[in-house]
Design a protein around this nucleic acid. Sequence first.
DNA 1: GCTTATGCATCGGGTGTCGATGTATACTCT
DNA 2: AGAGTATACATCGACACCCGATGCATAAGC
Lengths: 115, 115
Amino acid sequence: MDTTQLFRGTLQTVVLRLLAERGRMYGYELTQHVRDRTDGALTISEGALYPLLHKLVANGLLDVEGARVNGRQRKYYHVTAEGRAAAAEQVRAFEAFVETMRDVLAPAPPNPSAA
Amino acid sequence: MDTTQLFRGTLQTVVLRLLAERGRMYGYELTQHVRDRTDGALTISEGALYPLLHKLVANGLLDVEGARVNGRQRKYYHVTAEGRAAAAEQVRAFEAFVETMRDVLAPAPPNPSAA
DNA sequence: GCTTATGCATCGGGTGTCGATGTATACTCT
DNA sequence: AGAGTATACATCGACACCCGATGCATAAGC
């Protein structure tokens, strides 16, 4: 089956979080880093990443900085203050989501007698 | 923001798991049960639920059983053997997904020196 | 008799993602 | 010199999943 479906809506959180943690990264680096860090469990497709990066810049969550390294073009991204706040909030939202999911998927709910 | 986006791709897992746990339920009951169990954090829209139930039946993961209670029509669903296996697998997949997410979202990864 | 709750259902549209495709430069191997 | 691979950007068509609106029908409450 496809685990992929679950990652839907997570990409933005991942990108913001990684950039918040690591200061600045460029697109290709993001794909490689995530692939390595998850042992291939999560791979960011370029078709999803680049449009997202553009959108995040347009929304003021990221800033871009062009560069040229070893003759190759790069675009370094880093989070804005707003982006950093968004990252934190989305990580929190993810934790809440997991919590909710566990409540639903739990084998048996505890008796809701008292508070 | 919308926490809703995260639940994408989770609905099938939720439905299968609940039915595997509780034996049999009907559509409306599923929506109410999930709403109550999560204190409103997760609400299953009918526009998402009914097509899914039909699909799961078509795929052999669920069986249907028509009924009439208090003059009102109901359709009880219960998991097949295949559905039960799928439920277990999808819950496992969800746990793996969460695990992967934590690896990515973790503040700092441990040094990957030894096993 | 209107509204609310129960209970089923479909359908149009939006959104996020994949996969394919395209461009360009640098390195490696033969 | 030419082919293949890695690096690095980007777009675009198609698909899957879901929401919100809408519809039908019965029962209960006001």
